[in-house]
Amino acid sequence: MESLLAFIGGVLLVAGAAFLLLGGLGLVRMPDVFNRIQAGTKATTLGTLLSLAGIACLQPAWALKLALIGLFILFTNPLSSHVLARAAHRGGAEKSPLTGVDRLADDRRGDQA
């Protein structure tokens, strides 16, 4: 039983680390700030949650604390990304030339006109 939990914990930790690595790769490869935020947010959220779940399997006594930390990350991670993206857009951050529509910029211009 104990070794099974340790095995599951190990698998979860490796999976979490893999998603965090992909997130890091996304930060390097994505062309502009918005796409980078996208890569960063999703990968760090799932990667951290999987890592926390893995630790919970290895140290069951910490499970409740780890669950609270996970809940905290679920609420704060997207919020900080949202604030960063909003600030970047308002500050006129450069967008990748691939970018098609930008309804937010359209509406802002409409307000000024």
């Binding site: 998603f19 992909l22 997130g23 790769l25 996304g26 490869r29 994505m30 062309p31 502009d32 918005f34 796409n35 996208q38 890569a39 999703k42 990968a43 857009h89 967008k95 990748s96 691939l98 970018t99 098609g100 529509v101 930008d102 309804r103 937010l104 910029a105 509406d107």
Partner: peptide, 18 residues
Amino acid sequence: LAGIVLSPALPLNPGIVK
């Protein structure tokens, strides 16, 4: 996201929709 990041062509078509 993993699929996009790992693909050599980086298939993106970004934009901001309402």
